[in-house]
Nucleic acid binder design. Sequence first.
DNA 1: ATATTACGGATATTTCATATCCTCAGAGAT
DNA 2: ATCTCTGAGGATATGAAATATCCGTAATAT
Lengths: 161, 161
Amino acid sequence: MQLRNQVEWALHCCAILAGLPEARFLSTKDLAKLHGVPKEYLGKALQALSQAGLVEGTLGPSGGYRLAREAAGITFLDIVEAVEGKSSSFVCTEIRKNNPCRTPGMRKNGPCAIARVMWDADRAWRERLAAVSLADLARTLADELPPDQIARMGEWIEARS
Amino acid sequence: MQLRNQVEWALHCCAILAGLPEARFLSTKDLAKLHGVPKEYLGKALQALSQAGLVEGTLGPSGGYRLAREAAGITFLDIVEAVEGKSSSFVCTEIRKNNPCRTPGMRKNGPCAIARVMWDADRAWRERLAAVSLADLARTLADELPPDQIARMGEWIEARS
DNA sequence: ATATTACGGATATTTCATATCCTCAGAGAT
DNA sequence: ATCTCTGAGGATATGAAATATCCGTAATAT
């Protein structure tokens, strides 16, 4: 079980967008160059973010993407689910139905006990992701990254008018 | 992102094995019949459980599998990791290294802040799975399943001497 | 007008989950 | 001893999904 590569890309892109000057857009091309990933395929991930209402895109030269809301209102879970989907990592195929010993009376059993445990763990995973916002991430990065690199990032972005 | 089908099968098989009479083995063939899944492919999952030391297999007629330890000592996490692997669902490819603005001085940055969040969520998922043992599951099932079905299961198993 | 961009569809490529088949060695039954 | 049944493990086929690229369209800034 492994998350898509696009999840990692989308998270890093959102981290960049969260650090952007007010009302500034950054294009797919620049985001791809910044992370060294294929532009076309990254575009798909960004479209997913756009469709989920996390970012908004604008056309034309000097177009691109920016966050659709404040960074504090976008969580890791929002981004992960936008790219990876909201369905649980565990899918119950109800193989207990195949058991020849099962009660034929079709008692309306609730969900399988095994599935409940797995879904519970999945919920814990999502809760943890929902607890961290892009604002939290930006705070951490501002704290950890060397100041000169942050400055250089500002210049780099400024350079792409 | 989705767990293998084998994970579900392995969990259900372990649930059966946990309910087995002392020292009783159950073969792959019977486990496959009981769950309506392909015998050969299920065998692979059971081999993974065996290799992880969760179950032990014996050869010959009346051979098969049984739990290698007491049900209370085997958790959902053990089973999931035996089949699915222990590696995190999020793999950090260090795309920040591709950032042209990064400090060339190779400051020994710790792990990426984004990866840390994702790994933390993965840890929460695993902790939740580690909190439930096969004994817990057996207790739940004994509580929920209709008694006659449990009885019929006993007969069914008894029938395969 | 022209260049640039997001958007969406179509398609190729690669990887991985799924599934089957086969051989081998060990264990029990006759 | 011989036979059958079993798990272990390798080789391989198949299908779906992730990865990646290409193209056409509409919108927008210069």
